[in-house]
Amino acid sequence: MIDLSYFSLGVLLWLGSCGFLITLRREDKSFLEGKKSQSQEILSLDSGKIKELEMQLQMKTADLILATKKIEALETQLQITIDRLEYNEDEYLKSQQQSEIQVTNLEKQIETLEKKCLALNEEIETLPPQLIKDWQKKSFELLQTLLANYPTAKVMVKLKPDFPAKNLIPLLAPLDKILSKWEIESIGKPWEKVSYNPLIHYTDEENLTPNEKVYIRFVGYSQKGKILLPAKVNRTLPGQNKN
């Protein structure tokens, strides 16, 4: 006969083990589902953080691009400023060099004129006294009309500032007679347009070239082919725009 007690105990043990296994399986399933849910939450949180970081990165990148463009613009402006400074420095140096050349030329002209004056004074001192007196007498005779009227003309101009200049021209007529007497001829006419000739003209203009068209501002004088005073010329007349 089968011992029912042992059979019952075995059945109970089997049922108990089955229940334990079922419970254990359920717990494992719940644990796995919890882990899965937790992983999804973590992934969801990581995704949001990544998007936020991506947006921040895009903003930083945009700021960096803008800053780079500003730096390039500033570098361009700096280069332009440097170029202008170099150009202004070159122009200043050129102007300084030209001024130095003009000063040197003027000093040479002054030195030449001083030498001529000394030579003329020496020549005059060597002339016989009677010859000098005769020359002074003849010169006075030619200038006496002008010398007689000149003081009166000064008073008239002083008392009447609006006194017409044309009324003074007849008083200067003796000068034409003197020039004719001494065979002195004028070089050019006032405001006449001529070709620049360094032999008979002088100017304070820069870089004038021979045969360039100029205007006579002040006439010069020559005597028997000898230049006594070169005529002063300029590129423009008074009041004209140089440009």
Rank of each mutant, 00 (worst) to 15 (best):
K36H: 06
G10S: 08
L64V: 14
L237P: 01
N234F: 11
T61S: 11
G34M: 01
K94F: 01
E33R: 05
G48C: 10
P128N: 15
L159H: 04
E89S: 12
P151S: 01
R84N: 06
K181F: 15
N149V: 12
T104M: 01
R235I: 10
S186P: 00
Q79F: 12
A119C: 14
I2A: 01
L127K: 11
L9N: 06
Y87G: 01
K108M: 11
E125N: 12
N121H: 09
G10Y: 01
L21T: 05
T68E: 15
L24Y: 07
K177W: 13
I80G: 02
K224Q: 14
Y92Q: 04
Y92M: 02
Q79M: 13
E125C: 11
I132M: 14
S39A: 14
L106S: 02
V194C: 10
K160Q: 07
G220V: 01
E192Y: 04
N149Y: 05
V233G: 11
K115D: 13
L131M: 15
W135F: 15
S180T: 15
I42L: 05
Q96L: 09
G34S: 04
S99N: 03
I82R: 04
S5C: 08
P210E: 00
L143C: 05
G10W: 04
V214Y: 05
L57C: 11
L9G: 00
D83N: 03
Q96G: 08
E107L: 11
D162I: 02
